[in-house]
């Protein structure tokens, strides 16, 4: 699976997109906080284990990084993998030199 496959796979799930929405509000969230946000703000009732597995997929795609700080683990959003998508396809008009 190349990088683009991992990225599109990661984005092709509503719970994973909701996790990215939650992380776009604030970096440094614990698994507990993300689960609470999924249940309250997004109306999703996935188990903690399911949320953790979704985070694994997002981490593989480079969209989420896990940061260990002492005994805690925090999750941060990384939007860098999205940038190549914006550059990959342009409408033909945009390519025509003026």
């Amino acid at each position: 699976m190349d990088d683009a496959d991992a990225l599109f796979k990661a984005l092709a799930d509503p719970t994973r997109r909701a996790l990215l929405d939650a992380l776009s509000e604030r970096d440094g969230q614990t698994l507990f906080e993300l689960c609470a946000r999924m249940a309250t703000a997004h109306g999703l009732t996935s188990s903690r284990q399911a949320i953790s597995q979704h985070l694994d997929v997002l981490e593989t795609a480079g969209l989420v990084t896990r940061r260990r700080e002492g005994r805690y683990t925090f999750h941060d959003l990384d939007t860098a993998p999205l940038a190549p998508l914006r550059e990959r396809w342009h409408h033909p008009d945009e390519r025509t030199p003026r």
């Binding site: 604030r26 969230q29 614990t30 507990f32 906080e33 609470a36 946000r37 249940a39 309250t40 703000a41």
Partner: peptide, 14 residues
């Protein structure tokens, strides 16, 4: 590990 955050009907912090 969590600053004050709205969680449905309550605000929580940890």
């Amino acid at each position: 590990t969590q600053p004050p955050t709205r969680m449905g009907p309550v605000t929580t912090a940890v």
